[in-house]
Nucleic acid binder design. Structure first.
Length: 563
RNA sequence: UGGGGCGUAGCCAAGUGGUAAGGCAUCGGGUUUUGAUCCCGUGAUCGCAGGUUCGAACCCUGCCGCCCCAGCCA
């Protein structure tokens, strides 16, 4: 984790998990702190996972402990190597290092199996021949107790024999399962003889065909924690009901440690979805270009869009760790992105929707280089040279033929400043047959080179520009919320909930020449517009930039209010 | 109607009996060669109702509301 990230402490009260850890350390329940991030490799990581990753790794760092990365790979029917690799990439990109502590639940299959036999021998588990439907029927409902399976009381020897034959592959998928023998009448449905092992004749990404029975999450998770010496097993609220089961296994088995599980509420974000099911659906149905589409709330998507890892870490630290349901506004994430980028992003000039202007009193064959600072807030960022010439492009939005009172930018007869260049005055707006302004005839004041008038006169606007002759063409992709509503109510038709304007592609944008060599891992600011970074698909022949987030725009707000 | 969790400003969130931190958003104002940044200022009696107490968001009781659980998913 980066040293610049401040730990969650003093100013803000500690969250309840850190308070528990403090107490555990003080009482001597634990002498070190070991956490883990346990993704299932069945999809890409998203911003909600980032909250958990940051929590687990930050805690490990704050308490001088360690955090393991462990793949919860107990269901080969859904898991893939592609995801295992992508997840490691994402965690690393976020800035975390698990050192030597990379594990897989599948590393423990043999041990878990031994413990399954142990439970049978203790009379705490049995092989059930009921079908999935029958088991469901016996489970009861939320308000009615379940009924015992007819096989619940068969002998340990018989169950043992059956389990071994399950492992040998003698039975078909679904024919039998191993179940814990707990309490079919429990109010907690997780305790109504949960399934421990099921037959799955699928090839596992890591163990290949070595197994045809696989442990369930419940039977694998806590024991894996115990094997690794995890002291605080942090998970989301929906697992709270599983804790009694988690503890039951730890107490019933000769495990080497007694980890404890604590639950916190998961992250929800406005204008998007964070359920794995919905994200998979977006990818599978092709509503977006893939897991790393810049509109996706996935780590890969945010990264491609140009969000810095530091901004995501900052965000994770700001949302808070509690047990209450929450929906964080996307504006907070965007604020974190702007705050980080405002400090780190080099400034450049680029025109999204070009309007040509001709400086009629600037010699046709003349051109010059002007000095521009790279970051007004950071002297060490230095300066660069920007070419200026007779024909330039400015932003269409920066000119109005008949401006309202509060519009300070270019208008007929008005003088404004071209940033780092000169004061220019618009003399005439040239129109096409349709009556649209296609070009502006201007004059400049040679005395104002650099942007200041010797006579001290002021202008109300400073605009960005780019030399027509020197500009490079680029495609800019502007992104907006993926879903129209803050909290999308998605029924059968996910397409109907999508924001039709989530992607706007601008062709023929004009950028200052230095941008030809922009690097993908460096998000920069196009002054007065927003933060952009080269897309993965960019090439020297076809420059493509993604807009991470626009700059705040109080003019747009004013305009919208008066409209 | 079973079990678990939650309810402090628009959104998060501190607060753990002594009279409501902070952030984001919003709206005002100042500075400014990015209408950006930066800087000021702006809002709540704590789900409701009783009770205990000199005093309660914090303790007790009763309501109300929201979320999760009936995968051989995690």
């Amino acid at each position: 984790m980066s040293e610049i990230d401040k730990p969650n402490d003093e100013a803000r009260g500690k969250d309840f998990i850190r308070e528990i850890i403090d107490a555990d350390l003080q009482s001597g329940r634990v002498s070190e702190v070991v956490t883990r991030f346990p993704p299932e490799p069945n999809g890409y990581l998203h911003i909600g996972h980032a909250k958990s990753i940051c929590l687990n790794f930050a805690i490990a760092q704050e308490y001088s402990g360690r955090c393991h990365l462990r793949f919860d790979d107990t269901n080969p029917a859904k898991e893939e190597q592609e995801f295992i690799a992508a997840i490691q990439d994402d965690v690393r990109w976020l800035g975390f290092d698990w050192g030597q502590h990379l594990y897989h639940a599948s590393d423990y299959f043999e041990q878990l199996y031994d413990w399954a036999e142990h439970l049978i021998k203790e009379g705490k588990a049995y092989v059930d021949d009921l079908s999935a439907d029958e088991i469901r029927a016996h489970r009861g409902t939320l308000t009615e107790p379940g009924k015992d399976s007819p096989h619940r009381n068969r002998g340990a020897d018989e169950s043992l024999d059956l389990l071994r034959r399950m492992r040998q592959g003698e039975f078909e998928e679904g024919a039998r399962v191993l179940r814990a023998k707990i309490d079919m009448t429990s109010g907690n449905i997780n305790l109504r003889d949960p399934v421990l092992y099921r037959i799955l004749k699928a090839e596992h990404p890591r163990t290949g065909n070595a197994w045809c029975i696989y442990p369930t999450y419940d039977f694998a998770h806590g024991q894996s924690d115990a094997i690794e010496g995890i002291t605080h097993s942090l998970c989301t609220l929906e697992f709270a009901d599983h804790r009694p089961l988690y503890d039951w296994f730890i107490e019933s088995l000769p495990v080497p440690a007694t980890p404890h599980q604590y639950e916190f509420s998961r992250l929800n974000l406005t204008h998007t979805v964070l359920s794995k099911r919905r994200l998979i659906q977006l990818v599978a149905e092709g509503h977006i270009s893939g897991w790393d589409d810049p509109r996706m709330p996935t780590i890969a998507g945010l990264r491609r869009r140009g969000y810095p890892a530091a901004a995501i870490r900052d965000f994770a630290g700001r949302v808070g760790i509690t047990k209450s349901d929450n929906v964080i506004e996307m504006a907070l994430l965007e604020h974190c992105v702007r705050e980080e980028l405002n400090q780190s992003a080099p400034r450049r000039m680029g025109v999204l929707k070009p309007l040509k202007i001709v400086i009629e009193n600037y010699p046709e064959d003349q051109e010059e280089m002007l000095e521009a600072v790279n970051n007004p807030g950071d002297e060490t960022a230095g300066t660069r040279q920007v070419p200026f010439a007779r024909e330039l492009y400015i932003e269409q939005d920066d000119f109005m033929e008949d401006p309202p009172k509060k519009f300070f930018r270019m208008a007929p007869g008005r003088e404004v400043r071209l940033r780092y260049a000169y004061f220019v005055t618009c003399r005439e707006a040239v129109k096409n047959d349709a009556g649209e302004v296609v070009e502006l005839i201007c004059t400049y004041d040679p005395e104002t080179r650099g942007g200041n008038a010797p006579d001290g006169r002021k202008v109300k606007a400073t605009m960005h520009w780019v030399s027509a002759r020197h500009a490079i063409d680029a495609e800019l992709r502007l992104y907006n919320h993926l879903f129209t509503d803050e909290e999308p109510d998605i029924g059968d038709d996910i397409a109907a909930a999508l924001n039709p304007d989530s992607l706007e592609i601008l062709q023929g944008c004009k950028l200052e020449p230095s941008l030809a060599s922009a690097k993908a891992d460096q998000t920069l600011q196009l002054e007065r517009q927003g933060y952009f970074c080269p897309d993965r698909d960019t090439s020297p022949e076809r420059l493509i930039f993604n807009r991470a987030v626009p700059l705040r725009d109080s003019w747009a707000k004013l305009k919208a209010k008066t409209a």
